[in-house]
Amino acid sequence: MFLHQLITLSAVTVDKPTGVLGALATGAEDFIKVFNKGGTVLLSLMGGILPTLIVLLTAVNALVRIIGAERIENLGKAASRPGLQWYPVRYIILPFVAVFVLTNPMAYTMGRFLPERFKPAFYDSAVSFVHPILGIFPHANPGELFVYLGIATGIKELGFGLGDLAIRYLLVGLVVIFIRGIVTERITARMMAKAERSA
């Protein structure tokens, strides 16, 4: 009996408030609606991505600690050699390994093994890779995850898998940093020659 009363009570609808107070009330509801929606989004982000991210970060951080940052120094030395066959090492392999192992921003310290004329190009190449790597290895730059994740969330909303986008982002990223390295190296060389002539 009591339960029945409760149900009928809750079924009663109230007229929408009118007048100045009514407008204020509607305003208040709209105001809080923004944050309710935001809260729902936050919860779905934290529930959906964070647990995986924390476990993945832990595993990769441990791996990087076991490998040891000092071991990739030999690669840096190899990448400083002149010659065409070292271009892919300098602007694909070295940036990839540096960003993966040292992460943003310590990856740029690998530039110290290169001669001065390659340094701007290496920086350009490495810094351009801190986002394409995020789809598969988010540990490399977790503070800027949403460059990728913002768009990826939309794809997820449509019910599509993220693997295809993540791997293509990574691969196209590698092509782009290679081109960027070469272009910047050429521009640097030209500007250095010009500065030398005027000096």
């Binding site: 740029y108 530039g111 004329r117 640097t188």
Partner: peptide, 20 residues
Amino acid sequence: VGLALGEAEPETVEIGVPAV
């Protein structure tokens, strides 16, 4: 900053910024 982390000379930074 990135170039400084790579221990670049000031002259390299001067050229590196516009080059990039």
